[in-house]
Amino acid sequence: MELVHVTAGYPGKTVFQDLCLQLPDAGAVALMGPSGFGKTTLLRLIGGLLRPESGEITGIQGKKISFLFQEDRLLPWATAEKNVALVSDEDKARYWLSRMEIENAAQYPAQMSGGMQRRVALARAMAFGGDILILDEPFKGLDEALRERIAGRIRDVFPLTILSVHDKAEAELMGAAIIQLDQ
């Protein structure tokens, strides 16, 4: 997968100018860097949610990409189980919710803690399946013990996982090679 001379951003704000970056086709890659350096923008570009103004991204055509957003983006009017089942089926939803240690899947997001909501969002991304898993700050709101358990269950499930993290330990939990975004 390669980003070739990509310029991208949002109206009135260019985030990347002529960016060139090569990523492996398999394994796990973690993007690290201070806030505001464009980790989320880069993930959105790779995920096809943001189109580059110029340049191109190769190696993602025809691939099914599962995306965990920085915000949980759960449907407030659907139960945890329904939120996950909407992108897969009920069996897969139940499986991944139990893997994410969600005991009461009949709860609505507002009835859950921030950490639980994060795990439901993770369950949804896992249940969707595909070729590439993109995780934007996947462990946000999870305590250390839970991070370790969850990371063990989501790593190596997809052929390629690309994630953004704030600290090195999270990348190590996922066995990911680190790409430092600092220039």
Partner: peptide, 19 residues
């Protein structure tokens, strides 16, 4: 954000409308 989520998870038109 929810609409983008629906697009990312390939919601059909009816699923988007309903959910």
């Amino acid at each position: 954000n929810l609409l983008e989520m629906g697009a990312a998870y390939r919601f059909s038109f009816w699923k988007k409308l309903r959910w």
